[in-house]
């Protein structure tokens, strides 16, 4: 799927660069927004279909919700600090960070604002996913098992879950999954919210 995604984006870039006329530019925002709504509907079904997360949460204790909250705060604060060093506007840097590694959704959301920001969100969040895959075992070993949930962000419910599960234990894997679901639900809200500031 990752390869298909990269190929599709590359094909789109080439089409936009060589074939598709500039006259379409004023409509791109609306086209992207409609597509985004369709995608969010499917994402909702996926999340709902995961079964009774509430029950799992109750048995583990609601304090584990601090994990996604801290990952969210850390990601946004971290990108704002990094963005300041790069002299990027703080709200844009924060919005890119609020993608939490979910590169497809955050990039599509932000390409509504500008192609540049969409590109930045895409590469940042895809890099986060790749770095997370490499760092999870290292963090689990040298910093802590619970901390190894942090690098993956929203991807801890799918892509990075097997690596976390292998590097830690069943309990942490459940926390990782719940963290991923909570963070994924936050992406469609926090990314546009941060863009309304500044």
């Amino acid at each position: 799927m990752t390869l298909a995604i990269l190929a599709t984006v590359a094909l789109g870039i080439a089409s936009g660069f060589f074939i598709i006329p500039q006259s379409i530019v004023p409509y791109m925002g609306t086209i992207i927004n409609i597509g985004l709504c369709i995608l969010l509907f499917f994402v909702g079904i996926d999340i709902g279909n995961q079964g009774d997360l509430f029950k799992k949460l109750k048995s583990m204790g609601f304090k584990i919700l601090f994990v996604p909250i801290m990952v969210a705060v850390g990601s946004i604060v971290g990108t704002i600090i990094g963005g300041t060093l790069l002299s990027l506007p703080w709200n844009q840097a924060g919005a890119v960070g609020a993608g939490f590694g979910w590169y497809s959704l955050s990039a599509i959301e932000l390409s509504k604002y500008s192609a540049q920001l969409g590109t930045l969100a895409f590469i940042t969040n895809i890099s986060r996913e790749v770095m997370a895959l490499m760092l999870i075992p290292v963090v689990a070993r040298y910093i802590g098992k619970l901390e190894s949930v942090a690098p993956g962000g929203a991807t801890t419910m799918d892509v990075t879950l097997p690596v976390i599960s292998k590097s830690t234990d069943g309990n942490i894997a459940v926390i990782a999954f719940i963290t991923g679901v909570v963070l994924s639900s936050m992406v469609p809200v926090l990314v546009p919210l941060l863009m309304t500031f500044g």
Partner: peptide, 27 residues
């Protein structure tokens, strides 16, 4: 820029969880 932002988001997320980890589980 993307690589810098990705690295910062990971480092600060890990720090964030580290701040609360001792209250969530014993490890």
């Amino acid at each position: 820029q993307a690589i810098v932002l990705a690295a910062f988001s990971i480092v600060f997320s890990v720090i964030g969880v580290k701040l609360v980890s001792s209250r969530i589980i014993k490890q």
